[in-house]
Computed example of a mutant assay.
Amino acid sequence: MKVLKGIGNTILFIITVLVVGIALLNFFSSPDGKGLLGYKGYTVLSDSMEPTISAGDYIIVSMTPFEEIEKNDIITYQESENTLVTHRAVEKTDEGLVTRGDANDTEDVRRVQANALIGEVRWVVPYLGQVMLFMRQPLFIIALMVVLILSLLVSYYRSGKAEHIPE
């Protein structure tokens, strides 16, 4: 039984570290932010990079300098104030990077300049973005709060402290 409890605690610790790490990565991932240890993380919202990256996947982007981007690298860049795009660099020209989504038939109209580049996609975590979007829903947050409160109450009553409350 001790072994199972130890394994369970280890798994819980690993999950906690991963959740906290992803939360910190998201916190530092604004387009003009510093990132976390040279990385930023984003949830993909469109299927323009199918089959390589799908909507709902979570990408971890290395803040690679513009000069190091090469043909066929998958990059994330800021297209407008509120829009980030993750597409493949298909050519490097004097006007900037020519990009195209793997699922698209045509190249993107705008050329990516150095000041718009966020970095190169290093890892894709399938479905994690969908989970993160779900966790932002009010119903999930309420359910989580209820579970936490119930957990605290059960723990309190199991500890025996509730028996010592004067009436």
Rank of each mutant, 00 (worst) to 15 (best):
M1L: 15
V3Q: 08
K5F: 10
G6W: 14
I7S: 00
I7P: 00
I7T: 10
G8P: 00
F13W: 13
I14Y: 07
I14D: 02
L18C: 12
V20D: 00
A23E: 07
F27N: 05
S29P: 14
D32W: 04
D32T: 13
D32C: 02
K34W: 03
L36P: 10
Y39K: 06
K40C: 05
G41W: 00
D47P: 04
S48H: 01
P51W: 09
I53M: 10
Y58G: 13
I59P: 12
S62Q: 03
P65K: 14
P65V: 09
E67C: 04
K71Q: 11
K71M: 08
K71L: 09
D73H: 06
I74E: 06
Q78M: 11
E79N: 11
S80E: 09
T86R: 02
A89D: 01
A89C: 03
A89W: 02
V90H: 02
E91T: 04
T93P: 14
G96L: 07
T99C: 09
G101Y: 03
D102T: 11
A103Q: 10
N104Q: 14
D105L: 15
T106I: 10
D108S: 12
L117A: 08
R122K: 15
L128G: 08
L128E: 07
G129N: 13
G129H: 06
F134N: 09
R136M: 11
F140T: 08
I141P: 00
I142E: 01
I142M: 07
L144G: 02
L148Q: 05
L152F: 11
L153I: 14
Y156A: 08
R158H: 10
G160L: 08
K161V: 08
P166W: 10
P166N: 06
